[in-house]
Amino acid sequence: MGIEEKLPAGVALTTVEQVVGLARKSSMWPATFGLACCAIEMMAVGGPHYDLARFGMEKFGATPRQADLMVVAGRVSQKMAPVLRQIYDQMPEPKWVIAMGVCASSGGMFNNYAIVQGVDHIVPVDIYLPGCPPRPEMFLDAVLKLHDKVQNTKLGAHREQEITETEERLLRRSLPLVTKD
C-alpha cells in the first residue's frame, strides 16, 4: 500500500524523533555528582557486579561540559547548592537530571537548617529515585526509565505541544487522598 511494502530487506522506517532519541539514550555520558552515601552505591553500579557499561554509560565523566546526565547522588547542603547549579549550567543541552536517593529528591530525613529540601529547588529533575540509599538495581531501573523518557522525547513543535498537554493534565488531575479542609 505505502512505501513500506516497496522497501528492500534490511531497511526500516522510523521517525526522526525516534532516531534522535535512540542516539541520545544509547550513549549517555553521566556527570558524576557524588555527594554522600548514594555516591558509593552509584560507584558500585559502575563496578563489575552491576556493570553500567551494559547501558553504554560507563563513562562517568568528571567534566560537566561533556556530559548530558547529572546524577545528584546524596544530600545537597546549602553550601553545595550554588556549586551544583554552576555544574548544571555548564552542561550542554539537552541534559537530564536523576535525583538519586530521598535526600536529593526531597531532603529525606534531614529536615533541618543545613540541607536543601530537594534538589528540584535548584535544578529541574527528570527522575526521582527513592531509597536511602537506593539499591543498585533501583538505580538501573531509574536509568532504564530515563532511557525510555529520552527515547520518546519529541522534538520542535511536538515537544512544545507535549509540554502544554502535560501541564494541563497536571493541573486538571484529581490528586488528594488528604485535603486541607
Partner: peptide, 10 residues
C-alpha cells in the same frame, strides 16, 4: 530550621 512537609494537601 526544618520546613513543613506537604503531601497531597496535608
Amino acid at each position: 530550621g526544618g520546613i513543613p512537609v506537604e503531601y497531597r494537601g496535608a
